[in-house]
Design a protein around this nucleic acid. Structure first.
Length: 272
DNA sequence: TGCCCCCTGCAG
DNA sequence: CTGCAGGGGGCA
């Protein structure tokens, strides 16, 4: 489900509801989805909710963290009744009981995970350490972006955008949307972008991610926030899952193809 | 740097 | 029934 805007929306929801609460019970319904010993966090307080790229970082009293990756279909829900859904159900993988709240980790496809990790191991966590720059960070400057592109001359732009070790948090939706906004076809090589296109792409990445955070993320399929609410980004999506519809800018039909094994959406008129 | 794979459910 | 799905690890 989740790319940076969706994970950030979940992060904010959690921050609002679970910081300062003590974990009273942990129930693991699918063993592989919780890495580590759940005893390590029992009777401890949640002290912070952070995020790096698409990864949530739950700070635990006494030093450890719980890394949560939602991958494709993960959800974190604080309400046990959402519409017709009553939790736990067959997609519930982990349940965290917190004084007066219950946090359900739902994951249809079971690609996501909870990983309990102490401070020492945090510094050596491979995935976390490999993550590239945070797009909203002041470190993500136009200069940095340009130098990153120049190291990947033969790499297609979309592949570059999806590489979490370069920029953290962009996934299939926002890669397509950023390319559209920049007027660049996703398979163009980074090395052939002109200066003006590089600038457009840089701005497009920041704008589309921040717009989506403002809209509560994109609920194209499974994504919901911690209360079960959907995000509104799909209302303004220009290309993602818009194939066949007229381009909002030029009216020509949005096309869909397969690129690098992923569905890829574009406007042949607006993107060159 | 590309592909296959991990899984389940849903649309076509 | 087949193909596809917003992620990313492991393999050539």
């Amino acid at each position: 489900m989740p790319e940076l805007p969706e994970v950030e929306t979940v992060r904010r929801g959690l921050e609002q509801h679970v910081v300062g609460k003590e974990i009273t019970k942990v129930t693991v319904l699918l063993e592989k989805m919780l890495i580590g010993d759940s005893q390590d966090i029992i009777d401890k307080q949640i002290i912070s909710i952070g995020r790096r790229g698409k990864l949530l970082i739950v700070g635990i009293e006494g030093g450890g963290v719980v890394l949560i990756h939602l991958r494709m279909t993960g959800q974190l829900l604080l309400k046990s009744k959402i519409g017709n859904r009553v939790l736990p159900d067959k997609h519930t993988r982990v349940v965290l009981e917190l004084e007066d709240e219950v946090l359900y980790f739902q994951d249809q496809r079971t690609f996501g995970y909870f990983e309990l990790i102490n401070n020492a191991k945090l510094k050596t966590n491979k995935f976390l350490n490999a993550l590239g720059v945070e797009p909203f960070s002041e470190l993500f400057t136009f200069e940095l972006f340009g130098s990153q592109l120049k190291k990947k001359l033969k790499t297609p732009v979309k592949t570059f955008l999806l590489d979490q070790t370069i920029i953290a948090g962009i996934g299939n939706i926002y890669a397509d949307e950023a390319c559209f906004r920049a007027g660049i076809l996703p398979w163009r090589k980074c090395g052939e972008l002109e200066e003006a296109e590089i600038e457009k792409l840089y701005v497009a990445i920041k704008e589309v991610l921040s717009l989506s955070v403002d809209l509560g993320g994109a609920s194209a399929a499974n994504y919901v926030d911690v209360t079960g609410g959907k995000g509104d980004f799909m209302r303004v999506a220009n290309v993602y899952r818009q194939q066949g519809k007229p381009c909002r800018v030029c009216g020509s039909p949005i096309q869909k193809t397969k690129f690098g094994g992923r569905g890829t959406h574009f406007c042949i008129q607006c993107q060159k």
